[in-house]
Amino acid sequence: MDFSSFNPMVLAAALMVAATPILLAAIGELVVERSGVLNLGVEGMMITGAVVGFTAAVTTGNPYLGMLAAMAGGAALSLIFGVLTQLLKANQVASGLALTLFGLGFSALLGQGYAGVVPPRTAKLDLGLLSDIPVLGPILFRHDPMVYVSVAIVVAVWFWLTYTRSGRILRAVGENHDAAHALGYRVLRVRILAIMFGGACAGMGGAYLSLIRVPQWTEGMTAGIGWIALALVVFASWRPVRAMLGAYLFGGILVLQLNLQAAGIRIPAEYLAMSPYLITILVLVIMSSGRARKSLAAPGSLGKPFHAAG
């Protein structure tokens, strides 16, 4: 076996890119769930973002306009979920799954005629001197801009949830919507805005795939990433920075297992292919059986419909 070919710097750089679409979708869903809403439609919103972003970028020739369009598209689709679950009090689990089904079909219809089209390129960010720093430069400073945007969103969400008044309102709504309502907070408005934020983030994650990572439009191209994002929110026990660590852990194992295969390590490939899922479960088990158990609780009102009496 030849381990000399494993360059940790290269692995670290690759895992950040591999984790970015998952992270974008996860951080959005995290905000949604912190407001007390469970939206299982992440996959549907991601794929819609992927196609809307792609068509917009191809039409305008500008990948950043594509990104913005993808956010709008994801948010618009999530609004269907918002209306159903918040205004019409429909069941959240079923509505989310229906959203995924609808999104997969809708995106395929929108994308007809875009298969085989090449989108405009996104330039890597030129960070000049920073990218020449030894070790850190290749790991941290030679990516496309969206990698940094995803990290910035995580930090911003963490800061917002922890230190701002509106962030505290969102958490209050998620923990106990009746109490929040009694305090005069507008539960439904907060939740619908959170749902749209989640949709926008998922849309961005999808467009990251179709515009930067792959870049190509094909039906079903998100291939289940939305579900991983959902799992990561739980994995992170609804904490933004942990979501980032979780995404990088998952991306890291994925990249590592592919590298192990590529290096011809004598572990059967099917076990390596399972490893990202099994190790994620294992880490969560270790975390949840430890001392920090209490901090793992889900938002109190998660998944429950809110109806203001009177």
Binding site: V17, A18, P21, L209, R213, V214, A223, L258, Q261
Partner: peptide, 10 residues
């Protein structure tokens, strides 16, 4: 696509 890209990088 996402996994194929990661595999190509690996």
């Amino acid at each position: 696509p996402a996994q194929e890209a990661a595999a190509a990088e690996a």
